[in-house]
Amino acid sequence: MTGDNHSHDHPHSLLPSDPELRVKTLESLLVEKGLVDPAALETYIQVYSEEVGPMNGARVVARAWSDPEYRQRLLADGTAAIGELGYSGRQGEHLKVVENTPEVHNVVVCTLCSCYPWAVLGLPPAWYKSSAYRARVVREPRAVLREFGLELSDDIEVRVWDSTSEMRYLVLPERPEGSDGLTEEGLAQLVTRDSMIGVSRAVEPGRAGQ
């Protein structure tokens, strides 16, 4: 064996390889040793299952669409403007908002791991964490967007944001046609998670929920 190969030295190989069994064994060991509080585990799960998710980001976008001054503040200092709505903290400590326009389309990735703005979007979907997305969207963004059903004409500039630091990127999608009379709550219904990652557009009114 070469010195480069530590696969048999990794402590994780001492636990059962089946993930369910592995996690169960680890959890009971950690709890029994007093290293984690079982109630704290439940709270973490509850926060990310129910309390933090794309509805946060949708509120930010809807506010930006209805309040031009807020939009200015949001683009100038994402962390502060998003903080105004009460969203901050883990994986949202430093936020930068990038705006889609008729000329420019932004899309976000983390090629090295899975960095994602949890504070405004919750936990990332599996495709965002997939090898295919991480490998391809920097090299062939237009082909990747086409798989999401988004066809961009050649004269639109595509900007890919590879999240390599603790800056977290949120896309401000274009406000859809026909959304003029809507309240902020109504607008938020048009904002999908995918539109804030940049792999789709916001939904046109009358098509939400379809």
């Binding site: 984690v36 509080d37 109630a39 704290a40 709270t43 973490y44 926060v47 883990r90 400590e93 430093h94």
Partner: peptide, 18 residues
Amino acid sequence: PPVTADRVREILARGGPT
């Protein structure tokens, strides 16, 4: 355990600014 259930939300809200 350093993290008890009652402190989880506060810890997440603080995050880890860099």
